[in-house]
Design a protein around this nucleic acid. Structure first.
Lengths: 148, 148
DNA sequence: GTATATGCAAAGTCTTTGCATCGTT
DNA sequence: AACGATGCAAAGACTTTGCATATAC
């Protein structure tokens, strides 16, 4: 992570580094959230006026083939994108505030080992999104929707 | 699983049991795979000639609100549906043969506990799909890739 | 200079919705 | 008989694709 050199990765595979691609990458790197194609488009459009959504999709597809970015589905019907991170991270989504945070902690590795040892299943990737209520929304708000 | 009485569940909530709804339910109960809306439509159409996909979607939405069925996203852009099962099950998807199997084993419960204890996150639902190679495709020789 | 990327517009998928009619309760 | 459910068609939301032009190398 840290200093991934997109330019080098792209050119190394015979692709070109265009301003649009660089800007999409920069936008994802800077983002604190998981952006949709449209959000990326809006952001880059501030700099490239005629920027087109189709280019966002084409670039995201390319970058994901190079394993530089990753798409996650959060259950709202749209794709959300982030800079690729180690595979043993997953997402916690709070249904109150809508926040999506990363979580690491060996759980994914545990799954991997468990499946391999006991069931001969070789894990390639783990799509794990946990929906629930985050700590903040828990104590911060007695008056929210469900107390259960 | 067990004898869930759709008729009763529906009527109990003020909904009607129509032949279409019953057939959709039966189709899901009998299915060995996770069906798409279109597959359900095709199946029920054998019996109800003018059956419409819109009704499939409307019924699936209703049944999922009643927690009788559940949608899973397997990464192919379509929704796949199954009869609802205990929440601590998840799916293993083989990228060779395309099979999707259920897996139970306390892992989801572990996640739940881990997040609750250490991070104050209350889990409501866990979306977990593990992609990889199943045992069969592993030892059954490497020539499966072409099918699907 | 040449092949790749882009913008634009149109098409594709999957899913949802409006409305008149049908059918369960 | 009443009101929810269905069929049909059209619209929606998100994503992909064809093609002429622009541009990175």
């Amino acid at each position: 992570m840290r200093g991934v050199d997109v330019a080098h990765r792209l050119r190394g595979e015979g692709y070109r580094l265009t301003p649009q691609r660089q800007l999409i990458w920069d936008t994802l790197r800077r983002a604190s959230r998981h952006l949709t194609a449209e959000e990326i488009h809006d952001e880059v459009s501030k700099i490239v006026p005629d920027f087109n959504v189709a280019s966002v999709y084409r670039t995201l597809t390319l970058l994901s083939e190079l394993q530089l970015v990753k798409e996650i589905r959060l259950g709202d019907g749209k794709g959300h994108w982030e800079v690729a991170h180690p595979d043993d991270e997953f997402h916690l989504r709070c249904r109150m505030c809508g926040s999506v945070t990363h979580h690491t902690g060996g759980l994914v590795e545990q799954i991997r080992v468990h499946l391999s040892d006991g069931h001969g299943f070789t894990t390639e990737s783990v799509d794990l999104v946990v929906h629930g209520i985050c700590a903040d929304c828990h104590d911060g708000s007695a008056a929210h929707e469900a107390d259960r």
